[in-house]
Design a binder for these strands. Structure first.
Lengths: 126, 126
DNA sequence: TTTTTGATTTAGAACTGTTCTAATAAATTT
DNA sequence: AAATTTATTAGAACAGTTCTAAATCAAAAA
């Protein structure tokens, strides 16, 4: 594991979650100012392949990278903000259904976040 | 609703599911040979905004467009093939948790499809 | 009808996020 | 230390999608 790989792993895990490749690049530059964007993508891909981090593909937005620990995501339809949720675990049920073939699942729950709801409701409705 | 919008809606709903924008474009060209790619994107976006079709963002693959009817997706990690599944509905549980703020959810189950499993196991293991 | 208005479509340029390439540097093995 | 492998770099290339500005179409108004 190279210093970059390790550092990128730490950044994705430690920082506020759901970082874009570019945000990871920004953080990494603070430590290694000469690092290249390619290194960030290379290592993010490698870490994903190794199953050490997860990639979250989203609509209209670059991929996010997240810690592997099992949790689901809440996505605000209005502002796009992501948050973590711990929803009832579906793993057992999926294992029952698909046996060994089952690998993992990705659950995104779309909603309107409290901030956006407040912004809406504070406007006069007529 | 314009003829293109209607036609694109029909293509997404009628055809084998999970079409890419390009596949939709291909189908639409059979009917309107002069149609432009921009029209396809414009109308797919409009239909998504209207909630008449859904967009499925995937890793390493262009977005797919799908009928709106509630169902979940099974994605082969090896070959990328998508299939539909009807998993236990989580809607009520999510409504209980998030109330009116809840909109919808997207569940993708990753697995190794039967074809890929067979391809693997038929290779000698030593 | 014609005219006006607004929405839709078009072609292709532009853009964004990501991957690729070929050269360089670093690490590891011999 | 020489040879080999692996990682990194800069920037070009690429794919998918959006944008732009002109052209066309459709509906409503005159």
């Amino acid at each position: 594991m190279t210093k970059y790989e390790k550092q990128i792993y730490d950044i994705v895990n430690a920082s506020r979650q759901h970082m874009t490749a570019d945000q990871v690049y920004g953080e990494l530059q603070k430590i290694y100012p000469a690092v290249s964007r390619a290194t960030v993508y290379n290592n993010l891909n490698k870490l994903c392949d190794l199953g050490m981090i997860r990639r979250l593909p989203l609509e209209d937005s670059p991929d996010r990278y997240d810690r592997i620990e099992k949790h689901d995501h809440l996505v605000c339809q209005k502002c796009g903000k992501l948050s973590d949720i711990c929803f009832d675990d579906l793993t057992q049920s999926l294992k029952d259904q698909f046996g060994e073939a089952f690998l993992y699942y990705d659950l995104k729950v779309f909603y309107i976040c409290p901030d956006c709801r407040n912004a809406q409701s504070s406007k006069p409705s007529i």
